[in-house]
Write a protein that binds this DNA or RNA. Structure first.
Lengths: 195, 195
DNA sequence: CGCGGAAGCGGAGCAGTGCTCAGCTTATTC
DNA sequence: GAATAAGCTGAGCACTGCTCCGCTTCCGCG
């Protein structure tokens, strides 16, 4: 929400205003919204936007930072209040639901997780680690299948989030979650369960 | 591979040559390759490309037509040679594997399936129907869970294909298939299976 | 063979994109 | 109030998809 070090008052005002405007435009047009559009709407030169957010990912990172932190914290919360298997499943569900905030954000996150220079890299790695802890806990309790690690869980969430982002399949998102995530995560499925 | 009705010899030559060039460039740069690049490489004006392929999807459709037909036929093949559950699983695997041919093609297919005007619409619907038949057969044999229909299977395949298309997760494609698809499709999973 | 018309072709042009950078403005300090 | 460093602007470049009109070429017919 703020910048490191000292900044001129006008610069900070522009930064905050840009972020506010970007939030609306990215919510409407998705992660590949026009940067020119954002700058223009904010009443600011294009160069100013690039000064504060040198890459598109830097802008997205600023936009998503608090949500990522909230999801990471949520993982700890759930681990403390729900049985291992349910905590894992709930958190997975919340993650996929979150991505509906901004179209196309899943793709960016997946790209960022193996690109250490990306501004989003750290947040994504942290998110994966939070999921990995929930997963391990569930595995140790025998509530999740073995043979999966944090990256697999990340991929599972990403795949589901991506499906929920596709207009043609979005209205089935809930059902797809049951079909794909539940059996993938459960170690002891009910024989013949039909959802 | 050819056009309907009568066409001038030079037009047909351009059509075929464009398709050949496009195949290479799309294989290299993905489904959103530069059309100008394709036209230039083919030694043809941009207008000529648009004359033969009025939309990007029309071009992709021409590129994918035979593969789609092959996959549809393959579904029939598998239904005739494998037990229902295995046929379904094998076909699903082949579908996801196919999409690695061209980056980004999954996204286009998913978009096309609910856009009747898309040049790819018919092919995608046909593919979904072929999958639906395999799925129903497996369900009737008790080898696949109930509560899934053709669109769910299509989504499952699309999700897996998309994951396989992401550089960060591609090298786990096989494992992800086991984690996501197998438990989603099996009606009678082995308790505690660990892959 | 030559000719006319229709089909096909080319690429400049428009509006949009991401991104850079030289020159100007302004906030802050002394 | 002046000096200075930080910040701001938007024209400009290279690219994108897509259109459209003037030109070329092919093909059937006489």
């Amino acid at each position: 929400m703020c910048q490191a070090g000292w900044v001129r008052a006008d610069a900070r005002k522009n930064y905050d205003h840009l972020l506010e405007v970007a939030r609306g435009i990215v919510a409407e047009h998705g992660a590949d919204a026009s940067l020119r559009d954002i700058a223009r709407t904010a009443g600011v030169g294009l160069g100013t936007l690039y000064r504060h957010f040198p890459t598109r990912e830097a802008l997205l990172e600023a936009l998503l930072r608090s949500s990522f932190a909230a999801l990471t914290a949520r993982a700890v919360d759930l681990a403390g209040t729900l049985p291992p298997g349910e905590a894992l499943l709930s958190w997975t569900r919340e993650c996929t639901r979150f991505t509906t905030t901004y179209h196309g954000v899943t793709q960016v996150m997946v790209a960022a997780i193996e690109e250490p220079d990306s501004a989003l890299h750290a947040s994504c790695v942290e998110l994966r680690a939070a999921g990995a802890r929930l997963l391990r806990r569930a595995q140790e309790a025998g509530d999740a299948r073995d043979g999966m690690d944090g990256t697999d869980l990340f991929a599972l969430i990403a795949g589901l989030a991506w499906l929920g982002d596709q207009a043609a399949l979005a209205d089935r998102a809930e059902h797809l979650f049951e079909v794909i995530a539940v059996p993938a995560l459960r170690a002891r499925p009910v024989v013949g369960e039909t959802v």
